[in-house]
Computed example of a mutant assay.
Amino acid sequence: MPDRSKFYDPTNAPYYNPSVERRVVLITGGNTGIGWYTVLHLYLHGYVIYMAGRTKSKVLKAFEDIKKEAATRILSEKAEEKYHVGELHYIYIDLLDLSSVTKAADEFQQQEQRLDILINNAGVMGVPYQITKDDYELQYQVNFVAHFLFTCKLIPSLLKVAQDGQLPRIVVLSSIGHNFEFKHYKPEQHKLKGFPDSVYTWIRYGIAKTADIHFVKELSKKYPEILSLAVHPGIVLGTELYNHWRQIPVVKYGSNALFGISNKLIGVTNEEGCLSTLRAALDPKLTLENNGIYIATGGVVEKPSRIASNEKYCKETWDWNVEELNKRGFNVEDDR
């Protein structure tokens, strides 16, 4: 069982009045699961939040629910004077279409001069083999490449915060599932396919989540004035990431039984799952000395796998993806 006594307490983080000190967050996904609670807490801390998602109606519904829950928490704690809730804004993005990723970055930069915190939260897990219109394996694109591109386009907005003497942050959701990359695969091998796909999908997931950690470690070197952190939220069975396995005929019965047992033994709630992200985003005790670290369940710092930690592999992941994105016309600058 997770040691909840060590879990990060977000109420210890600073609170802001957005009319006095505007702190801006951009998060992908966030209308359900871990992301929903991440946004809730950031909203309660007074952050101006932009949620980038594909379905506007779902995002707007999430905003309504977050505002209602925030009001309940404020009243229950009788802390009206302490809290100055933030703002909630929507930006369209489709991580399966890289052209929409650059447009989303452009739209944000047209509305905001600077970005304090970028949270690459959205993802998929264990889905069937599929190649996207941008010619990447689906999990690799959604979990990694789209966020790689998004982040690179937003670096100037983050650097403006550093130029103002404050600490910008990039938070990338990886997973303990990065260990499914049990041996090193070169980035060009991310389209790995084999039988049965129910096994290989998890290896592909591990490749993508390992790439997320590689990305963070390279960011920490290339942009040492930005605090870049990878996080593992924990085993969160309440998230939609498991929906595919809950619905497969016949298999779903075994999957649901396994998920139920796992949830009781090692699982955490959606709100507990967001604590690693919140620590990475909010904890003032984290400084540039912590750049590139991996924060696991509840906000506890851990060491990722040998493959994820390998500096040569980190550079390999960065260089190959910059080259591939440039081939596709996305003009990712790599001048540091």
Rank of each mutant, 00 (worst) to 15 (best):
A105I: 05
E87N: 11
A105C: 03
F215V: 02
Y37Q: 04
L149K: 06
I91C: 03
L258K: 12
T269V: 10
N31H: 12
K222I: 13
A280V: 08
A62R: 05
T277Q: 13
E188M: 13
K183T: 14
D65N: 14
K193N: 12
Q113F: 13
G165V: 10
Y136C: 07
T239Y: 01
R114S: 15
M51L: 15
N121Y: 08
N31V: 00
E77I: 03
N291K: 04
F144D: 02
H184L: 15
Y8T: 06
V268G: 00
V101A: 06
K193T: 08
Q166M: 12
W320Q: 01
I91S: 07
F150D: 00
N31E: 11
K78A: 14
E69Q: 12
E81N: 15
L173P: 09
S19G: 08
T297Y: 04
P2H: 08
T132G: 00
K221A: 09
T287V: 11
H178C: 05
K315N: 10
K133W: 00
E80W: 13
M1F: 11
Q130E: 15
F180W: 11
I207Q: 11
S19Y: 10
I261E: 00
E80L: 14
P168A: 12
P224C: 12
S99K: 15
A162I: 09
F144G: 01
I261C: 02
E87R: 13
F259K: 10
T11Q: 09
G238L: 03
D334N: 15
S174G: 07
V59H: 02
K103L: 13
I293H: 06
E289N: 13
Q163D: 13
K285I: 01
N263Q: 10
E87Q: 14
R54G: 01
L88F: 12
A211L: 05
G165F: 10
A211G: 07
P284S: 03
G206R: 03
K193L: 13
G86Q: 09
A79G: 03
G177V: 05
Q141M: 10
D65M: 13
Y50I: 08
T72D: 11
Y129L: 09
L286W: 07
